[in-house]
Simulated assay, not measured.
Amino acid sequence: MDVDRETLETARRSLHGVAELVLAGPQYRQSGTIRLRIVRGGFGTVQDPDLRVNGTELVVGGREIPMNGTTCRELAAAARVDAGGAGDVYKDGSGVGLDETLGVEAKAVEYIEECLVRGHEALAGFAPNTMPVLWPEHFDVGISLDEVNYGVSLGDAHLDEPYAYAGPWEPRQGSFWNASFGAVRPLRLFPGADALRDFFVEARDRAAHDPHCP
């Protein structure tokens, strides 16, 4: 990864803000869902309004609006949507303000979107009948299957780098489960989608057989 940590963190925070305040919030007010999806080059809404992020640009119809150096309020105005989050649907979020200047350096964005695509591909291979969702709350791509959450996070207070996770709704005992909410592994440890899928497979098997925490 040929990008420094500060630039990467700025891009991650900025994209999270756009996902939450420009895509998910307006979509929730218009169509009643906060779910987003991974698309070629980035991510987008699943229902109206039809918006997507492609690299460092917000795409609205045939228009491409550069995001770097602008704000979520300005982007929403250019896209003709009502900027803002989804109210009290969830408590956490990006922490990005509507007038915060966004920093989306191209190489950092490329790396972030590569992580999202890897997560989407691994989840689709692991559970082909379940559509992965990009959630705006924590900006992670994931699924729920048999009362276990699986996914890829771009990093947060728990682990400040992209990581894969598996979180049983009821905690399990055993060395595999190395986090309070389940199991996490840095994404850099997985050489490709197959290895990442294998982690989800192992997590599913262990969740089915490991004892529940008392």
Rank of each mutant, 00 (worst) to 15 (best):
G32A: 06
L154S: 07
G85Q: 07
E114W: 11
E170D: 12
I65P: 00
C72A: 10
I65Q: 09
E57M: 12
G182S: 12
E202L: 15
L196A: 10
G174A: 11
F181S: 13
G17Y: 00
Y165A: 04
A203K: 05
M131C: 08
N149G: 13
G85M: 04
W177H: 12
Q47S: 14
E57A: 12
P162Y: 07
D50H: 09
S94W: 03
V53K: 01
C213S: 11
G42H: 06
T45E: 01
L8G: 05
A207N: 07
R35P: 01
R29H: 13
G87I: 11
G182P: 05
A76S: 10
G142T: 08
A207Q: 04
P168A: 06
G151Q: 08
R37A: 14
L145Q: 15
H209Y: 04
V81D: 02
R172A: 04
P128G: 07
Y150N: 06
P214G: 12
D156G: 11
V39D: 08
L75I: 06
A203N: 07
A157W: 07
T130G: 07
G32T: 10
R206D: 03
A108F: 05
D156T: 03
V148M: 05
L15F: 01
P186Y: 09
L159W: 10
F176S: 04
E114Q: 14
C213H: 12
R37H: 06
E6R: 14
S153Q: 10
D205V: 10
T10Y: 07
A157K: 11
S175Q: 14
L102C: 06
